[in-house]
């Protein structure tokens, strides 16, 4: 499995898709800076690095990470269909399930890398743009853990969508749209004491989002259970992934009469 994941990173070198993650992370941080700057002088006067960190996490889960993770994961798998390389991979005794798992692991690692980039952007913006003077080592450490933890929990929440929508060629585009709405709806869930039960925001209790106030609202045990359920769901979806022939079949080939005849002829 480790070798397959290494291969995935080799393939990634040629893809410019990673720029979508970079742009997404930058948009999230820039928007947070704008929110902080326009908020100062109003009811949020006196906010510091801690609040800025929370705003970045909020933007990350609601606007950026779910759709970016789905796009990355879906794209990685879809390239095997569009480049016709799936048959070559399968003849190298790598099953479709194993391939899907390796793609999911790669997407998870990429998510953490983007989260680290998000943390760096947050820190740089806090120092150079917002000029916060309350940045301590403890706050930096907390910010790092929270941003990375939130991103990884977002990945776990989106993983079933990646596994499901990657069963067909170009199916991931629908998944990107659904992941986008899935992320936005997290803002409503979090505002109504449903954060622990909603997969996108289930990690809040685990990462300690919201400090002492958050500790009273979020329950890490429920969050852990929900994310564990997402992992189980992903494993089940990957386990029941269609065989190679079915995955490669085009919709017209499967549904229309001519396509069925061709399939039957090939089968015989």
């Amino acid at each position: 499995m480790l070798n397959i994941v290494k291969c995935e990173f080799e393939k990634l070198k040629r893809y410019s898709i990673l720029w979508t993650g970079v742009v997404g992370v930058l948009v999230s941080v820039v928007y947070a800076v704008l929110q902080i700057q326009t908020g100062i002088g109003k009811e949020t006067e006196g906010m510091g690095f801690e609040v800025f960190n929370q705003v970045v996490i909020w933007n990350n889960f609601s606007l950026v990470f779910p759709s970016i993770i789905m796009l990355l994961g879906g794209f990685l798998i879809n390239r095997e269909y569009t480049d016709n390389t799936l048959k070559a991979v399968l003849t190298a005794s790598v099953s479709f399930r194993k391939l899907l798992f390796s793609k999911l692991i790669t997407t998870g690692i990429l998510t953490v890398l983007f989260a680290i980039f998000s943390f760096l952007c947050t820190f740089i913006a806090a120092v150079l743009v917002l000029h916060f003077n309350d940045i301590t080592l403890v706050l930096i450490e907390t910010s790092f853990i929270q941003i990375c933890g939130n991103a990884f929990s977002n990945f776990l929440a989106v993983a079933p969508l990646i596994a499901w929508f990657s069963r067909k060629q170009n199916g991931f585009w629908a998944g990107v749209g659904i992941a986008f709405v899935y992320g936005i709806c997290g803002t409503f869930a979090a505002g109504r004491y449903l954060a622990d039960f909603y997969p996108i925001t289930a990690g809040f209790g685990i990462i300690g989002y919201g400090g002492n106030e958050g500790a009273e609202v979020f329950h890490p045990i429920i969050g852990c259970a929900v994310l564990a359920l997402m992992v189980v769901l992903t494993i089940v979806i990957v386990f029941f992934a269609p065989p190679y022939d079915e995955a490669m079949a085009t919709p017209s080939g499967r549904n229309n009469k001519k396509g069925r005849l061709i399939n039957e002829r090939n089968h015989h």
Partner: peptide
């Protein structure tokens, strides 16, 4: 991606109009 960035900028400004 281009459309998403354009939309997010527009939406963000519209969303926090009161600020």
């Amino acid at each position: 991606l281009l459309a998403a960035v354009y939309t997010l900028v527009n939406f963000s400004i519209a969303y926090m109009m009161g600020n």
